[in-house]
Structure formats: structure tokens, C-alpha cells
């Protein structure tokens, strides 16, 4: 596609480090010049050797840094996790991700009931994702919406209901686009289209 054909030839691109991430919130990871020997000086396992016992309580280590523990903690699916699923989708026009051009924003992802209220993982849950196109006449809004939908349907368990919309006022024809994205029949029909399917597969290639 030539530059002049693009809907928005020059969108603002954020660097990956600026995007919201779980690791940032998690806290202090030392990476200064003096941290070269942290693995020796602050080892996870206090003294060298190998335990015969699989019972981890025998083996002393720092609780908050233990990988096994993060594995065992119950962490319900939250907005950040949905964001992580979506932010790595590629933009159909530019070689950047939806997170980088802020089409997907953490603040515009809503779960109801919220993760804290959801005690039983099998509760029926609504996921609402509002997308913000980079320009309000973006002709690819529907394609992006479709890709987001496909990604979530492939990644979330069956008890999640997915609603993908254009954010209010962010798109000249948001009503029409929303209607299209909300209509199951039309979504299914769109996915029968090989060209469209190809574009979406391409967009989802960068998902990790």
C-alpha cells in the first residue's frame, strides 16, 4: 500500500516500554550497573545444593519471588490480561501493534462482574472492549474490531461474553460499525470471506 493510500499515514506510536504492563506494576526489578551479581548475592535459594524433597516448604526461599507460588496463586482474568491479549495484534496498515497506536487502551476494557467479585471462575462474564481508531474516518475500524473479537473468542473460555465497540464519538460511523461487530451472523459471514480471513490471520500473527 502506498503511503498516500493510508487512512492515517502518520499515527502517534508509543514505544513498547510505555505500554501498561503487569511486570511494571509488580515492583522493583533491579537492573542498575550494580545488579550484575544479584543472582549470586540474593539467590532465590539461600544456599547452594539440591533438595531431595519435593515438598517445597522444606526448601527455604523468599516467598514473594517464588515462581511456584505465582503458579499456584489464583489470579482471575483481569483487564490487564485482556489488554495483553489484544495489544500485540498488528495494525493492518502499519508495522506496529494496536497497543502502540493506542487503538486498544487498558482503561477502555471492562469486565463485569469485576475480577474481585467473581468468586466462581465459571460465572458468566461480560468483556467490553471499546476501541479508539486513530482517525475518525478509519475505514479499517471494522477489520480491527473483527480481529479483536476473533482473538478474544480464541483465547477466552466459553463463559465469557464478548462485546467489541468503537468508543463513543471516536468514529464517524460508529453506530454502523458497532452494529456490524455486534451481529453474530454478520461476524460469521465476514469470517467466511477468505480475503478478510487472510488479513485477520496476518494481524494475529504477532500475538504472543
Amino acid at each position: 500500500m502506498a503511503k498516500s493510500d493510508l487512512d492515517n499515514a502518520n499515527p502517534t506510536v508509543l514505544s513498547v516500554s510505555q505500554l501498561p504492563s503487569r511486570n511494571l506494576a509488580k515492583g522493583h526489578v533491579r537492573k542498575g550497573p550494580d545488579s550484575k551479581y544479584d543472582h549470586i548475592l540474593f539467590p532465590k535459594q539461600w544456599w547452594a545444593g539440591s533438595s531431595l524433597n519435593t515438598d517445597p516448604s522444606v526448601w527455604t526461599s523468599d516467598e514473594d519471588e517464588d515462581d511456584d507460588l505465582t503458579l499456584a496463586t489464583e489470579e482471575p482474568i483481569d483487564e490487564q490480561e485482556i489488554y495483553d491479549l489484544l495489544s500485540t495484534i498488528s495494525d493492518p496498515e502499519h508495522p506496529v501493534t494496536l497497543g502502540q497506536i493506542a487503538v486498544v487502551r487498558l482503561d477502555d476494557i471492562h469486565l463485569s462482574p469485576s475480577p474481585a467479585e467473581r468468586l466462581d471462575p465459571n460465572t458468566l462474564t461480560n468483556v467490553e472492549v471499546d476501541l479508539t481508531p486513530t482517525v475518525n474516518h478509519c475505514s479499517l475500524a471494522t477489520v480491527i474490531g473483527l480481529a479483536v473479537r476473533v482473538r478474544l473468542e480464541n483465547a477466552l473460555p466459553p463463559n465469557y461474553r464478548i462485546i467489541v465497540r468503537m468508543k463513543d464519538g471516536s468514529h464517524a460511523q460508529d453506530d454502523q460499525v458497532n452494529k456490524q461487530l455486534g451481529d453474530k451472523e454478520r461476524v460469521a459471514a465476514a469470517l467466511e470471506n477468505d480475503t478478510l480471513k487472510g488479513i485477520i490471520e496476518k494481524m494475529l500473527e504477532t500475538c504472543v
Binding site: L71, E74, E75, E81, P121, A155, Y160
Partner: peptide
């Protein structure tokens, strides 16, 4: 695997997602 992608543990969900992609 669709059910497993709602696993209690986030680590397990990540693995389930990969598994789902492979089986899809």
C-alpha cells in the same frame, strides 16, 4: 482447552492459550 483457558492460574492459562492455538 477452551475451558482450560479460564484456569485459575495465569501461568496455566498462558499454556492453555498456546495449546488451543495448536489444536485449532
Amino acid at each position: 482447552l477452551a475451558t482450560a483457558s479460564g484456569d485459575k492460574s495465569r501461568e496455566a492459562r498462558k499454556v492453555a492459550l498456546l495449546a488451543r492455538e495448536n489444536w485449532a
